[in-house]
């Protein structure tokens, strides 16, 4: 008994010491534990700072631009002559080039991407899908500059050998190549949407005697429509923002034309041309860079928000 209490007393002292020691190091730990989340929060704010940085720089310089060029002239002008004696800054030629190249790209990527998605999600066996899908995704991993090279040195000459009217730099070839680049994006997003359709309703259709094609078009696609449409919208947004392919293969003609055999400049290509031309800071040309970039930014932002809105709002829940 005496021994026990003695032991307990000794132990007690030891434990107390240990607790005290522990508490001392704890106080350091608690400070540490409080600093860490603050530090991590600062990292997380960087993404917000980036957004603010983008909007702020674009907005400030765009306002400068519109003090030199009336806003209405910018958005309704069909003449873009930044380097002439009487410079004109109409953005319509660039908008036109951007929209036409994106349209061509979507004419390629839309149907082919959707058909590939249908094959991968409805027809392909697991084994085939596991081979084809990563291969298709290699296309998405190739740098755009490589596509630009391909459009300029291969696709354009091929088109010109079939259709001699096409100019050496034209909007058709980069449009098509851009479409190829976007195929995996549309295929993979649409496939995800179609995979999310539960098998039970697909099998219901098949049990009623429908062919795979009928179940695909009458059951699966309507059910996955919101995801498919949003993948198309994202594809358009990607095409609008694409830079190197059009810069290399479509040249820098600022004519307002609808002739796809000719060179057209997109907003992105204009930015590359002006920024690479060492425009002196403070000149109207320099500010026009920001006005065009702002237009581009707003366009793609609207597209991205729209895509998210569509896929969220019109999703069929099962």
């Amino acid at each position: 008994m005496a021994l026990n209490s003695k032991l307990a007393k000794e132990n007690n002292v030891q434990v107390r010491e240990m607790i005290e020691q522990k508490q001392k190091s704890r106080s350091f730990l608690t400070i540490f534990e409080k600093i860490i989340p603050i530090l991590l929060f600062l990292f997380a704010t960087l993404s917000i700072i980036t957004t603010i940085g983008i909007i702020y720089t674009l907005l400030i310089e765009t306002i400068h631009f519109f003090s030199a060029v009336p806003i209405w002239d910018f958005f309704s002008g069909t003449n873009l002559k930044p380097l002439s004696q009487n410079p004109e800054f109409g953005v319509l030629p660039l908008l036109n080039g951007t929209i036409i190249s994106s349209l061509i790209a979507m004419l390629v990527a839309g149907p082919i991407g959707l058909m590939a998605a249908i094959y991968l999600s409805e027809y392909a066996s697991d084994k085939v899908r596991r081979i084809l899908k990563p291969l298709l995704e290699v296309l998405a991993g190739i740098p755009t500059i490589v596509y630009g090279f391909f459009a300029f040195t291969f696709v354009t000459p091929v088109i010109r050998s079939i259709w001699p009217d096409v100019a050496a730099t034209n909007i058709l070839s980069p449009g098509i190549v851009m479409g190829v680049m976007i195929i995996p994006m549309i295929a993979s997003l649409s496939e995800d949407a179609m995979n999310a359709v539960p098998n039970s309703i697909r099998e219901g259709a098949l049990a009623m005697g429908a062919t795979k094609l009928e179940s695909t078009f009458k059951i699966v696609i309507p059910a996955a429509l919101s995801g498919i449409i949003s993948s198309f919208v994202l594809g358009i947004s990607r095409a609008i923002g694409e830079t190197m392919i059009v810069t290399i293969a479509s040249g820098s003609s600022k004519n307002f034309t609808f002739d796809i055999t000719q060179s057209m400049q997109t907003m992105t290509a204009y930015i590359v041309e002006v920024a690479g031309g060492e425009a002196p800071a403070g000149s109207t040309i320099y500010y026009s860079l920001y006005a065009v970039a702002m237009t581009l930014f707003v366009f793609t932002l609207i597209m991205n928000l729209l895509a998210r809105y569509i896929s969220r709002k019109f999703r069929e829940e099962y």
């Binding site: 983008i54 674009l58 930015i271 970039a293 930014f297 793609t300 932002l301 991205n304």
Partner: peptide, 13 residues
């Protein structure tokens, strides 16, 4: 949203 901003806009930033 940042993931959807065209790369050239980052260039301007």
């Amino acid at each position: 949203n940042l993931a959807g901003v065209p790369s050239i806009v980052y260039g301007i930033l």
